[in-house]
Simulated assay, not measured.
Amino acid sequence: MTAYVALLRAVNVGGTGKLPMTTLAQICKTAGLRKVKTYIASGNVVFESDRSEDEVRTTLMDQLQAHAGKRVGVIVRTASELAETLARNPFPDMPAHRVMTLFVDGTVPTDPLEGATGIRNEQVRYGKRELFVFYPDGMAATRLRIPCEKQGTARNMNTVAKLSEMAAALTSSGSL
């Protein structure tokens, strides 16, 4: 059994993609996922499954489309990969709420800033399947637009840390 974290794209952000977390949990359970727990209202869920990452993503996307009537982007990471992402944070001394991890499917584009607009004082660093972005003035003040945002979803390091903790608890204790 593998512990996973699923991150939904554009859920409960800016008044779009309304999805109560109780509904998300039920969708996950209906999809056969076990030990399902959601975290805050932005589409974060941890669970266990014996399926592959691709199978989990496809199943969740299909279930969410059936529920919402439209495609919902889903990024899936194993508990260990999320922990590694947290450990690779290139901005460990910066306020965690100002460092975002932009999770993308597959590999990060060769030049993720190609076509980017609105760059000011933000700092961007590569990860494996993510980008790390430090927003010194906060995300509310930024004009930065990165093209690969359209294929991914971002979470601040506080959220990444909490999800990593929750997913690790699944693997270590067998339950949350």
Rank of each mutant, 00 (worst) to 15 (best):
M1G: 04
T2W: 14
T2A: 13
A3C: 06
V5T: 03
A6L: 03
L7D: 10
V11W: 02
T16L: 09
T16P: 03
P20I: 14
M21C: 10
T22R: 15
L24A: 08
I27P: 06
C28T: 08
C28M: 05
T30K: 08
A31E: 08
R34Q: 15
R34T: 09
V36L: 01
K37D: 06
T38R: 06
T38H: 02
A41N: 15
A41K: 09
G43T: 05
D50Q: 09
D50C: 03
V56W: 04
L60Y: 00
M61P: 00
K70S: 07
K70G: 02
V74Y: 01
V76T: 07
R77K: 12
A79L: 14
E81A: 13
A83W: 15
T85D: 06
A87D: 08
A87M: 03
R88F: 01
P90Y: 12
F91T: 15
P92E: 12
D93M: 13
D93S: 08
M94E: 10
R98I: 10
R98N: 06
V99C: 00
V99K: 01
M100P: 07
M100I: 10
V108R: 03
V108I: 11
V108Y: 02
D111P: 05
L113Q: 11
E114L: 06
E114N: 04
T117W: 00
G118T: 10
I119Y: 03
N121D: 08
G127H: 14
R129V: 03
E130P: 01
E130R: 06
E130D: 13
L131T: 01
F134T: 11
Y135C: 01
P136K: 05
P136L: 07
A140D: 13
P147G: 09
P147C: 06
C148Y: 05
E149I: 01
E149F: 00
Q151S: 15
V160F: 02
L163C: 05
M166F: 04
S172A: 09
G174Q: 08
L176M: 13
L176E: 15
